[in-house]
Write a protein that binds this DNA or RNA. Structure first.
Lengths: 186, 186
DNA sequence: ACGATGATGTCACGAACTGACATCACTACG
DNA sequence: CGTAGTGATGTCAGTTCGTGACATCATCGT
């Protein structure tokens, strides 16, 4: 019994997050995560490339939302507007139902070097993808790189604010204010 | 014999970079690196926290250069000028003698996920340190975060340009042009 | 029923890291 | 000149990560 239960992937993610918050990332073994999900260590590695990746599922969809939004932006958009379009295009991911999970997830990530490292890589990949999308819209380097980094910067800061304990604003509201603040820098 | 030779740390770094470029990061074992440096695997881990870290020595000094430059900036400097001061304060690290080594090092890093991940973390740490330095100079969040990210963006892009194959401009020249380009974005 | 397909289990293994203890080189001090 | 102390290195055993190879079981279409 208990073999072939659906939702193995989701069970692994939930178990992993619970254990990371309980005992910390380092002191949690993959075997423990798998056991709590009624699976074996080997199966864990069939769903996730490594122990860190279990908290970073769905980044591909986020990345595509960024890239697609750039491709769909109006022709007359400036480089900065194209980059901002990328960020705006990802707002649908951050629904109110997701906010509690995002808070728990971020708490686990921010308290462990290994997980912060993976998150940094993901942010860098996002920036690289946006930069590439900008180039395909005719933005020249190094402007494409700089504009993409500026957009990801707003995205990163907006996310941190969005999951702050008392925060109630939506992702869209937060990002609008940050874009304004960023322009005020120049 | 050959025990107690000075420069063990440097020998390990050189051996590691050579082997990473020859066979790739993944297919190089720590034991191999140590053997080429006439040391043991255990000694490697006494000098470097992990296999990746061997290519990221000296990041502390770079970080301090950033932070110190912010602290030393004139009182009337704007947030953006403070952040730019951080980057400018690191120019001395990138001398002409260092450029060949930086090129080899970057080649090794950019071709391996594990190393790019570590580099992303280091960049993120730089940004966080600059943001903190800005806060200590009275810049409020989220402006401090945005300005710090903008500065690190210029730093990152300038470094990539600096190590490009035919590049002869100095770090200072490259950064000045990028700062101008970044302002033109707004 | 039964064979194809795909998810899971089992086993073995290399390589990354770590703790505990031993050993050797260099230095200071009597 | 010897000797004790300090610090870098060596040795060894062990845990955990991650992967390849192969077996097993559930489900689905026919």
């Amino acid at each position: 019994m208990a073999r072939w239960q659906p939702g193995a992937r989701e069970r692994l993610q939930q178990s992993a997050l619970d254990l990371f918050l309980e005992h910390g990332f380092e002191r949690t073994t993959v075997a423990e995560i798998a056991a709590r999900a009624d699976l074996t260590e080997r199966t864990f590695y069939r769903h996730f490339a490594d122990k860190r990746e279990v908290l970073f599922d769905g980044q591909d969809r986020l990345l595509h939302a960024f890239v697609d939004a750039v491709a769909a932006a109006p022709v007359e958009a400036s480089p900065r507007e194209l980059a901002e379009a990328a960020v705006v295009g990802s707002r649908d991911f951050f629904t109110e139902e997701r906010r509690p999970w995002s808070r728990r997830r971020h708490q686990a990530i921010s308290s462990e070097d290994g997980l912060r490292e993976r998150e940094s890589l993901k942010m860098g990949s996002l920036a690289a993808a946006v930069a590439q999308a900008l180039r395909e819209r005719g933005v020249e380097d190094p402007l494409a790189e700089l504009a993409a980094d500026a957009a990801i910067s707003v995205f990163r800061v907006s996310f941190v604010q969005w999951i702050a304990p008392e925060e109630t604003r939506t992702m869209g509201e937060i990002q609008s204010e940050l874009f304004a603040a960023q322009r005020a820098l120049g």
